[in-house]
Every structure is written in C-alpha cells, then in structure tokens.
Amino acid sequence: MSFNRKTLLGLASAGLGLTATIASADGELQLYNWTDYTSPELIEKFETETGISVTVDTYDSGETLLAKLQSGAAGYDIAIPTHNFVPILISEGLVQPINASELEGYDRIVPNLASPWWDEGNVYSIPWHWGTTSFTVDTAVYSGDVDDYDVIFNPPEELAGQIAMFKSPDEVITMAQVALGLPFCSEDPNEMQQVLDLLMGQKPHVKTYNSDGILERLVSGDVSVHQNWNGYSLLARKEKPSLQYAFPEEGVVAWADSLVVPKGAPNYDNAITFIEFMLEPENIAIQSNSSGYANGVTGSEAFMDEGLKDAAELSPPEGTPLKFIESCSPKAVELQNRVWTALLK
C-alpha cells in the first residue's frame, strides 16, 4: 500500500510545496514500458520472489520516451525502447551501462540477438521481445494467397475499402519500402517518390489509419486487412480463426524491444535484479505468453503455452528476410515527413 502514502505525500507537497514526492526507498522499481506490454503475472512473480515493489507506467511512442528521458526528471529504473532507439539513447547519453555480458544468464540470449548492431557487446541493453510488422488478412473474405504485398497495397476487388493501416508515418513507410524492395531510411527523393506513389494508390482503399483498436476492428469484421504486429495478429486469430498473418517473400519489417536502464535511475541495483530475472527462461516465457511475442532467451520455449511456441505468426517461413528497422538520419526523417504530409494533406 505504498500508493496511499505516495498520494498523500503528493497532495501534501502540492498544498505546501515543500517535499519531494518519490523517495527512492530500497524496495522499489519504476518500470516504464509500452502500453499493454507488461504481464501482470510476471510483475507479481517478481515482487513475490524479490520483495521489490514494482510500479509500471506506460508510454505511447518512442518519441514520448525520448522526450521524457531527455527531460531528465522522470525517475525510471527500466525503460523498454525499440531497438532503433537504443543507439539514439546511447549517443544522447540517456542510458547507463549495465555490462550485460557480466550478468547471470547472459549466455542464454539467442545468438542472433546477442551483441546486435544497435548495441555491440550488450553494454547497455538486453532483448525483451522481438517481432515483425506485416499485415493480417481475413481468409473468409479473401481466399487467394495472402503472402503478397499486393493484397494490402493494391488490393483485389473483394478487399477494396476494407483496409486499415497504422497511424505512425515510420511504420507505414517502412512497410512500403520493404514491398518496393527499397532500403530503409532512404535519403533519395526518387525512392521516396515511389513510396508516396504506392501509398497514394493505396489510399482510396484504406478505411482508416489507426494503430489502436486493431483486434477489435479485425474480429468484428470492420476491416478485412490490417497492418499488424505478429503478436496482435496471433491474439486476433485466437478469437477469429480465419485471420492469417502474411509473410510476403520480399520480407517483413522486424524489431526488437530492449531493456535499458536510464541514467539517474533511482534504483539501479533493483533494475539489475529485474534484468537478471528476465533472463530466466521461465520468467520471460510468462511475458511471452501474455503478449504473444517471441523473446530472446534460449530455453524459454519449454515454458511457453501450446499454440504459442509453434504459432505461424511467430515463425517466419524459411527464407523470408527479416528486415530490422534502422535509426534514420534527420534528412531521411524529413523526407518521410514530406511523404506523410503529401499523403494526408
């Protein structure tokens, strides 16, 4: 019931303007994660085992996380950015080294996520979940081959006007780039013009650009094709078996969210305890079961739910390229903006 004390203190400080609110008591951990991305069961287990009390706050975009960490006063012990934000956080000096290779359980990180390009030697981060961004199709409406970007960008008649895309420019544009066989973070106007043309051609068939309520729209049949993450596609399929996640041969966008410790974290030791806890196969499996995403710890499959470890959404077919998104240069971001404004003006 530390909450009550905190609110009272907060109230008192608001009224009197005297004290700082959040005292960094020993047994606390402030976790800052994406919305809807932390398993309550996992937190409970961690609290029981370690006696550390965890508070979870959430953010809605990488930029929100960046802005809050840049402000320096946030007071979080663990944050979970997407991998392409990790180099930014490092170069801006917003995270502190954890030297993961010296931590217990480090050797369990799967080879292709250990010492990745965004954090060589895992000085600052370890993987949390990894996944892909592609799209989900209702096979009850469309019986053709779904593993084709034409289904979403240039839809057949039965799917026209039945398409939903994400709302964030980077996610829409990166998918278009994969479909066109173009590199990410392009600084070439001609390439970006191709992206714009593709998206403009698609727009009349798009019902809505929205990154929230994905499951709802798919399951209710409001739309028949939805740009989607693989974990959400899996959750949607559990409710409506005719939904299928696409793996086009051009490849799919891939990402890995990572655990980092912000600079100035009030409870560094507890953060390290949490990171080691997450490297236990049994624990990260609880998280995977809850979110529907794969993780980067070997041996966790043994603890994963039936229907998750061999789910089609989590296992890209042999030979499908996984294209990990990059940290774009300001010039590339500027071109993306121009494409987006031209698309939605």
Binding site: K6, T7, L9, G10, L11, S13, A14, G17, T19, A20, T21, I22, A73, G75
Partner: peptide
C-alpha cells in the same frame, strides 16, 4: 519534482 503535484499544477 513534486510527483503528483506537477500534474496538479
């Protein structure tokens, strides 16, 4: 840095 006080302000 007044915690909830920041939001109240």
């Amino acid at each position: 840095s007044w915690g909830i006080g920041n939001i109240i302000i």
